[in-house]
């Protein structure tokens, strides 16, 4: 993998909109999805479906986890992954252990202290915060004070690649680069050839069977145009999905990952933020708490068109050998 800076098919590309022919374009916009604060509420999935009027695409129970959405597709532009692991999560204290609580004694104390209110009480008095309210130890506890089980949640989305394979291979020009540096399908042009589907190294874009055309996240191009943030980022209650100029997001992400490392969460890492990676960096990048493949993300994606010049070279050589082979078939014994 050579980093061919200046090669439009591969490598870092600081000004994507400029390279696509825009003059005086606004800064490149993107998403930073900080999965360490995602609570798996799926507000982003719902907001996306609502805003973009995406049709229902199956109500299935997978039985594998709380994730019944399963993956990105033509009618799923945000997907919240749920992962349940036997791995410690640094510094988290869910406080769900109640081994040392005698429930009968506790029941006998109802209404005698602010932390065990009367059944009739609904709201604690202002200023009388129950002192030891979240009582109880962490359960089960590892010697270093961490729980042994963790849930990872991550809201996946189109990466709006710097070098987007879907855009490169689209034969109709239906997929195009916007002035915000994002990648969008023009539904009135797409002829449903389906080439973009296997080209995407992340498995994002897909064809809608009944409609025939290809669909994916537009990074709410319509909202961006009028200065609004995308619906998912707007709906996210924990700011796990952050929207903004990519440079700003990258700075913010670097601070976030350093803070997590300092807190002992050594697993924390950024994914897709590096302009030197196989797709020239993602316009939508992530802070992950485990290897990317655990979240269903490819560990080292490369835009397929990086190898395009080499592919054509081989095809030309093959075409020449076919012509040579045919000529050879005619040279002997003309009758």
């Amino acid at each position: 993998m050579t980093d061919d800076t200046g090669n439009l098919l591969f490598g870092p590309q600081p000004d994507v909109a400029g390279a696509a022919g825009y003059r005086g374009a606004p800064p490149r916009m993107g998403f930073f999805t900080d999965t360490s604060v995602c609570i798996g509420c799926k507000a982003c999935e719902v907001a996306c479906k609502e805003w973009n009027a995406i049709p229902e695409d199956g109500l299935e129970l997978t039985g594998m986890s709380y994730d019944n959405t399963q993956g990105l597709g033509a009618s799923t532009w945000r997907h919240v992954a749920f992962i349940e692991q036997r791995k410690p999560l640094g510094g988290q204290e869910p406080g769900v252990g109640h081994e040392d609580v005698d429930v009968f004694a506790a029941a006998g104390q109802l209404g005698t202290s602010p932390s065990s209110p009367d059944p009739g009480t609904t709201v604690a008095e202002v200023g009388s915060a129950p002192a030891g309210a979240p009582a109880g130890a962490i359960s089960p506890v590892a010697p270093d004070g961490r729980t042994e089980l963790r849930w990872l949640m991550s809201s996946d989305v189109c990466k709006h690649c710097t070098h987007a394979a879907c855009l490169d291979v689209c034969p109709t020009g239906s997929l195009f680069r916007t002035e915000f540096g994002t990648v969008v399908v023009q539904e009135d042009i797409c002829n449903g050839c389906g080439y973009c589907v296997p080209a995407c190294p992340y498995g994002v874009i897909d064809q809608r069977p009944d409609d025939g055309r290809a669909w994916k996240c537009t990074l709410c191009y319509d909202r961006l145009g009028v200065g609004m943030e995308p619906a998912c980022a707007k709906a996210c209650p924990t700011d796990s999905i952050q929207f903004g100029p990519l440079d700003e997001l990258r700075d913010r992400a670097a601070v976030g990952v350093a803070r997590l490392h300092a807190a002992g969460v050594t697993d924390a890492r950024l994914y897709g933020e590096d302009p030197g990676d196989g797709v020239g960096g993602d316009g939508a990048f992530f802070l992950l708490l485990d290897e990317p493949e655990v979240y269903g993300l490819p560990p080292d994606p490369v835009v397929t068109t990086r190898d395009m010049p080499d592919m054509w070279r081989h095809a030309v050589a093959a075409a020449a050998s076919l012509a040579g082979l045919a000529a050879l078939s005619f040279v002997r014994r003309p009758r």
Partner: peptide, 16 residues
């Protein structure tokens, strides 16, 4: 050996 998300594919398979 490798990890994956519940064995789900990473790529969307060709619709051809």
């Amino acid at each position: 050996e490798f990890s994956s998300y519940y064995g789900k594919p990473i790529l969307n398979k060709p619709t051809w």
